[in-house]
Computed example of a mutant assay.
Amino acid sequence: MFHTFTFLRRDAGHGGSDPGGIGNGLQEKNLTLKIATNIKSLVEDYKDVTVKMSRAGDMTTESLQTLKWW
């Protein structure tokens, strides 16, 4: 019998002083974080699924940190 598991990494990108794209009163950093957090909430309840986020709030993630994170 095989035991399988899924490891999912979500990189919300941008954050902190880097808002990403801005338009219509929206900032990309807020949208990407919300989408990544919603995906995490949807899939982490499945058996044997682990979800890791590059950021969980409005913080700047340096490029090198993101590369190490992966």
Score class of each variant (00 low, 15 high):
Met1Val: 09
His3Ser: 12
His3Asn: 13
His3Arg: 14
Thr4Gly: 12
Thr4Gln: 11
Thr4Ile: 09
Phe5Tyr: 12
Phe5Ser: 14
Phe5Ala: 13
Thr6Ser: 13
Thr6Tyr: 11
Thr6Asp: 12
Phe7Asn: 13
Phe7His: 14
Phe7Ala: 09
Phe7Lys: 13
Phe7Met: 07
Phe7Gly: 04
Leu8Phe: 05
Leu8Ala: 08
Leu8Asp: 10
Arg9Tyr: 08
Arg9Thr: 03
Arg10Ala: 09
Asp11Ile: 02
Asp11Gly: 03
Gly13Arg: 04
Gly13Pro: 08
Gly13Ile: 02
His14Thr: 01
Gly15Val: 04
Gly15Gln: 12
Gly16Thr: 06
Ser17Asp: 14
Ser17Gly: 07
Asp18Asn: 12
Asp18Ile: 02
Asp18Lys: 06
Asp18Val: 02
Pro19Asp: 09
Pro19Lys: 04
Gly20Lys: 05
Gly20Asp: 13
Gly21Ser: 08
Gly21Trp: 02
Gly21Thr: 06
Gly21Arg: 11
Ile22Leu: 05
Ile22Thr: 13
Gly23Asn: 10
Gly23His: 10
Gly23Arg: 11
Gly23Glu: 15
Gly23Cys: 04
Asn24Asp: 15
Asn24Val: 00
Gly25Pro: 10
Gly25Phe: 01
Leu26Ile: 09
Leu26Phe: 08
Gln27His: 11
Glu28Thr: 04
Glu28Gly: 08
Glu28Ala: 05
Glu28Trp: 03
Glu28Val: 03
Lys29His: 05
Asn30Cys: 06
Asn30Ala: 08
Leu31Asn: 10
Leu33Thr: 03
Lys34Gln: 14
Lys34Arg: 13
Lys34Cys: 10
Ile35Pro: 14
Ala36Met: 13
Ala36Phe: 04
Ala36Tyr: 07
Ala36Thr: 14
Asn38Thr: 04
Ile39Cys: 14
Ile39Tyr: 10
Ser41Pro: 01
Ser41Tyr: 01
Ser41Leu: 04
Leu42Pro: 07
Leu42Arg: 11
Leu42Glu: 15
Leu42Tyr: 10
Val43Pro: 10
Val43Thr: 06
Val43Phe: 06
Glu44Thr: 03
Asp45Lys: 09
Asp45Pro: 00
Tyr46Arg: 11
Tyr46Ile: 05
Lys47Glu: 13
Lys47Ser: 10
Lys47Cys: 01
Asp48Asn: 15
Asp48Gln: 15
Val49Tyr: 12
Val49Ser: 14
Val49Pro: 14
Thr50Tyr: 12
Lys52Gln: 15
Met53Asp: 06
Ser54Arg: 12
Ser54Phe: 02
Ser54Asn: 15
Arg55Pro: 06
Arg55Cys: 02
Arg55Thr: 01
Arg55Glu: 02
Arg55Ala: 02
Arg55Trp: 01
Ala56Tyr: 06
Ala56Met: 11
Ala56Val: 07
Ala56Ser: 15
Ala56Pro: 04
Gly57Thr: 09
Met59Asp: 10
Met59Gly: 00
Met59Ser: 06
Met59Arg: 05
Met59Pro: 00
Thr61Gly: 00
Glu62Trp: 02
Glu62Thr: 03
Glu62Met: 03
Ser63Leu: 14
Ser63Gln: 10
Ser63Pro: 11
Ser63Ile: 10
Leu64Phe: 08
Gln65Glu: 12
Gln65Asp: 12
Thr66Pro: 00
Thr66Phe: 00
Thr66Trp: 00
Lys68Cys: 02
Trp69Gly: 00
Trp69Ile: 00
Trp70Leu: 05
Trp70Ser: 12
Trp70Ala: 10
Trp70Val: 04
